[in-house]
Design a protein around this nucleic acid. Structure first.
Lengths: 135, 135
DNA sequence: ATTCTTGCAAATCATTTGCACTTTA
DNA sequence: TAAAGTGCAAATGATTTGCAAGAAT
């Protein structure tokens, strides 16, 4: 996985976020994984390289990213939240056996007519079942 | 709200669940609300009528219901889970302002072709935004 | 009588917060 | 050097668990 700190740095600044080393590292990490990691996973993976890193900072950063619409929380029915970069609209498939979350491209249909009168900000489509390797 | 304890009782038994007073009460409660309550809400609402009720029992019962596919957790991006009876397929709309979760009837489309090879057990469609009263 | 359920309290786990210290613009 | 970010430890809140007492079959 090639990281591009300079680009991440610029991207964050453009989003109005001060680009600290920790933030760039976390952004870069999210950019280079398809694992939809939890805060714990992010922390565990980055901690060896950034020994001073604290969980609180990961939480701070992730919450900031979500606020700025850079990342979105992926709801799985476990306890801890998992995160994805806010990329083009796609669905998620959560494998009940291995826990992997797959990105599924979809053509997001029009909202159902029953939603007239509502102002939709976000839509999430979430599947659960068995992935090809686990079935 | 008319409750029908006898019917709830029979329904639970048919699902292979021993129909204790607490379980029937909780099932009945879920049956008579559209609020998609959290465990805390269920507890607070039932506790006055069932003073001995404990939170642990509500958790036990809800988890049992989810296991038996009688109820489903509705993922909102807050902290606590909220629950819905597993009724015919519908989407949820979560109002960012008032927190209400609306049931939205939808014609669940066919799964995207990118999901070939996956075995789908559940699909959830979740909207977030402003409801008619809050926009 | 045996088995399952309940209720309480303590334990756990994810997340947030307060505050002193450090970094950065 | 003022403002913002970080890290630690303690606090909070939701959920789970261990276990003794109670209810059901």
């Amino acid at each position: 996985m090639k990281t591009n700190v300079a680009r991440s740095d610029a991207y964050l600044r453009q989003k109005g976020i001060k680009a600290s080393f920790q933030r760039v590292s976390i952004f870069d990490y999210l950019h280079n994984t398809t694992a939809h990691p939890s805060v714990s996973q992010i922390f565990s993976d980055l901690h060896p390289n950034i020994p001073s890193l604290s969980r609180a900072t990961v939480y701070n950063t992730i919450n900031l990213f979500v606020e700025k619409k850079i990342a979105i929380p992926v709801q799985v029915d476990g306890v801890e939240a998992r995160y994805d970069l806010a990329e083009p609209q796609h669905a998620h498939f959560h494998c009940a056996t291995c826990g992997t979350i797959y990105d599924i491209p979809v053509e997001m249909g029009h909202a159902p007519k029953s939603l007239e009168g509502f102002e939709i900000h976000e839509a999430q489509l979430h599947y659960k079942g068995l992935c090809p390797s686990c079935r």
